[in-house]
Design a binder for these strands. Structure first.
Lengths: 186, 186
DNA sequence: TATAGCATGTAATTAGTTACATGATTAA
DNA sequence: TTAATCATGTAACTAATTACATGCTATA
């Protein structure tokens, strides 16, 4: 059976102990979101499909009058998750980076506009670094509480990743500023 | 008027002197593909829309019996391209990285499977580096011929980017291998 | 008492890929 | 002569986002 990647996100989040669609979405938004996003429009229909396929089991839990449907992995779901994690199919890696797209075409810009573009790109990456650092204490706490190592390692990767890109921008800014200055002199 | 990013890819490629849908697709596949892909299914309909909107101008050129439609930017198209390049709207940055998604959930894997996952991720990034290095001479030649600096700078970015990710994987491999070894000892 | 958060869900839309159909030209 | 390349295009499909609708509960 072939599942969508988003199905595996759900399976994985249930393995980490999240139960409702809402909780899954909340956790996605502070974790996998940065390399695999998911919206309610995917999560709720997918939960239904996974239950029909017998990979998860849902139960209505009523807290007073508020309905909520809590899910857990079945043995089959656990197996499907592990099968995907361990499979050696090529790993999808796509990105859509508008900043680099503009940079590619930046010969059509004036020198000062080129510098401004790279500066904005750098600032964006720096803002992501800040957001990720803000998540860090919570992630560290979750590790202490449940013993999972990899979510925190992944967060470290995210911080290093955006710091690397910000640093690249910084160097490019200096380089372009030097070119701009030498052109003005001549 | 709001255009799709893919529309700007086309405008930008025409600015670089590409003329037919086929040529645009060929260039995309060795350049922006790594941070902004585009398929025939997008390119040909978009060429039609851009022509209807007056941003590009197409002319049928017959080489013998082979039909081909060559496009060039109009003044309005040039302006639209520059407007997008210089605008300070937030820059879209999305990615879908299955390797890191698996890594995030890798607590569910055995130590040897964890190492294998990161090794495969590293190998994939290294293969991309090789492919990009293979493109380099052509890109260097294009710069000499037409004077564009930024496509080559972007290629440098791509190489540095995948090298960084490969290096991160390498370090993680060592770390995980050390953990695995210490667990076996105990 | 009002706002933020918890909770579920769908309809409409947008973006993009894949696969296919067609046919000419060039180089091995 | 055959395979690769040049060239155009569309139909079907898949993935995913956005916006909306609904209603409960806890907190300031």
């Amino acid at each position: 059976m072939d599942l969508s990647r988003t199905a595996y996100v759900i399976l994985g989040m249930l393995k980490l102990g999240r139960r409702t669609g809402y909780e899954i979405k909340s956790l996605v938004d502070v974790s996998t979101r940065f390399f695999w996003a998911a919206s309610y429009g995917q999560i709720y229909p997918e939960l239904k499909r996974l239950e029909d396929a017998g990979l998860i089991r849902g139960r209505d839990e009523r807290e007073g009058a508020r309905r909520r449907r809590a899910y857990e992995l079945t043995a089959a779901g656990e197996k499907a998750l592990h099968g995907w994690l361990a499979s050696d199919e090529p790993l999808a890696h796509e990105m859509r980076d508008e900043g680099m797209l503009k940079f590619f075409f930046a010969d059509a810009l004036e020198p000062d506009e080129q510098v401004a573009l790279v500066r904005r790109l750098r600032e964006q990456h720096q803002r992501v670094v800040e957001r990720l650092r803000a998540i860090e204490p919570g992630a560290r706490g979750a590790r202490e509480a449940h013993g999972e190592e990899f979510p925190l390692l992944t967060l470290g990767w995210g911080i290093a990743y955006h710091e690397f890109l910000a640093r690249w921008c910084e160097q490019m800014e200096e380089r372009l500023a030097a070119v701009e200055a030498s052109k003005k002199r001549s």
